[in-house]
């Protein structure tokens, strides 16, 4: 069972993001980066599939700056076998829209042998939800998104999607693309032993030939600061007024 998992280096969710001086991207300094949390579920799914099948390789593919090698190493430390980095050019620092990313990944993926192709369902930095399905389209592979349960069989796999109000179980022929949702599994931690052995695992870096931007980020703004709370009243008497305001002002009821 050979798998490829596509991962992205994203700002740590615990980082307080600041808008950079150009007003179009986040301030790079002082930002910790991590393996996109949804991709952790995808990596774990590949490792479990390999363990269950008793053979096969897990390849980690990432598109990003040179530092993304560190993110690939994190997945290697979890237990993946090899890594490929499609390195972006720092001199060509424009926003790559999801389809451009998908084209670049697909070009490489076409050369790779795989049964399973995993993505996190979204990257927490731009939340486009798009790259996984776009790659599946470009490769002409079936795709299941929002995967919350998964089992691989020889040549086939079952995947359960959790959608609003119900769960849909699907069977799909392999190779296929899967996008991991939260709760799919409990990703293992990268152990120190894993970190040491990750050092010896192959990591290929390929310079990415970049085109020109098709989608431009015009402005980046922080969400408005949260307003201070208001006292509506105390005790049971306050409830009708609270309900009224939730309905009329907040419009959440």
């Amino acid at each position: 069972m050979d798998s490829v998992v596509c991962v992205k280096r994203v700002p740590d969710t615990e980082t307080k993001v600041q808008v950079g001086p150009d007003g179009r991207r986040i301030q790079a300094s002082g930002v910790n980066h991590v393996l996109n949390p949804y991709d952790e579920y995808a990596v774990e799914a590949c490792l479990q599939a390999r363990e269950k099948a008793g053979s096969g390789e897990v390849t980690v593919l990432s598109l990003g700056p040179a530092e993304a090698a560190q993110t690939i190493r994190q997945a290697l430390a979890m237990g993946a076998d090899r890594g490929v980095l499609l390195k972006t050019d720092p001199a060509c620092d424009y926003y790559m829209d999801p389809l451009s990313v998908a084209h670049a990944l697909a070009a490489r993926l076409k050369t790779m042998r795989l049964d399973l192709l995993w993505f996190g369902k979204l990257a927490i930095d731009d939340q486009s939800y798009a790259v996984g399905p776009a790659v599946a389209t470009l490769l002409g592979l079936p795709c299941v998104t929002e995967v919350a349960e998964f089992a691989a069989l020889p040549g086939r796999a079952t995947a359960t999607r959790v959608v609003e109000g119900d769960r849909v179980r699907m069977e799909v022929d392999l190779p296929a693309v899967f996008c991991a949702s939260k709760g799919l599994n409990e990703p293992r931690f990268a152990s120190l032993k894993g970190i040491m052995s990750a050092k010896k695992k192959p990591l290929e870096t390929v310079d990415l030939a970049q085109g020109t931007a098709r989608v431009e980020v015009v402005a980046l703004e922080l969400p408005p600061a949260r307003q201070a709370g208001r006292w509506i009243g105390k005790g049971v008497e306050a409830v009708p007024e609270l309900v009224r305001r939730l309905r009329e002002e907040a419009k959440v009821l």
């Binding site: 740590d12 969710t13 615990e14 910790n32 991590v34 393996l35 949390p37 952790e40 560190q70 190493r73 994190q74 430390a77 931690f189 990268a190 152990s191 120190l192 970190i195 040491m196 990750a198 050092k199």
Partner: peptide, 16 residues
């Protein structure tokens, strides 16, 4: 690289 990875491993772990 390993020392950086160690930091990230602890960060990932505590983030959980």
């Amino acid at each position: 690289d390993e020392q950086q990875a160690l930091g990230e491993a602890i960060a990932t772990m505590t983030k959980r």
